[in-house]
Amino acid sequence: MAIRNPMYCGKIFIEKYKDEDCHLVKGLHEPLITETMYYEVQDILDGKKRKSKLTIMSPSMLPLRGFLNCNRCNRVLCGSASKGRGNYYYYYHCSSKCGYRKKAEEINKAFVDELKLYILNDESKEFFKTAIMDAYIDATKGETKDKTNWIVEITELGNRITKARELLLTGDLDGSDYKTIKTESEHRIAVLEAKLSEAPVVAVSPAEVERLLDKAIVKLTQIDVIYSNHDTYVQREVIGSMYPEKFTFENLQHRTANVDFLFQLIYQINSTLREKKRRASDRKTCLPIVAPEAGLEPATL
Rank of each mutant, 00 (worst) to 15 (best):
G175L: 09
D113E: 14
C73A: 09
I266C: 00
S96C: 09
K51N: 08
K145E: 12
Q268L: 12
T221D: 01
Y17K: 15
A207T: 03
L220V: 01
H23Y: 08
K102E: 12
L54P: 08
Y38D: 02
E143Q: 15
M61W: 08
P288R: 03
N71W: 07
V25L: 07
S281K: 13
S95L: 03
Y243W: 12
I151H: 15
L24M: 09
I3K: 13
S82P: 09
A135F: 05
T300M: 13
T183G: 10
V202S: 06
V218R: 05
E30D: 10
L213S: 03
N87K: 13
K179E: 15
V225S: 09
L168G: 03
L77K: 03
M133N: 02
L157E: 05
A190L: 13
K53Y: 14
P298V: 10
E143N: 15
P59E: 15
R160D: 09
N69Y: 12
T155L: 11
L220N: 00
V225Q: 14
D138E: 07
A291T: 13
H93T: 06
Y267G: 01
N121R: 04
T34E: 06
P31Q: 05
D177E: 14
T180Y: 15
A199G: 13
L173P: 04
E106A: 08
L167T: 04
T144K: 15
R165Q: 14
E15Y: 10
I33L: 08
R255V: 09
C94G: 06
T256H: 02
I161D: 00
G86D: 03
P6L: 04
I3Q: 12
K277D: 12
F261I: 13
T34L: 07
A104M: 03
G175W: 03
Y90H: 07
A194L: 01
L167K: 11
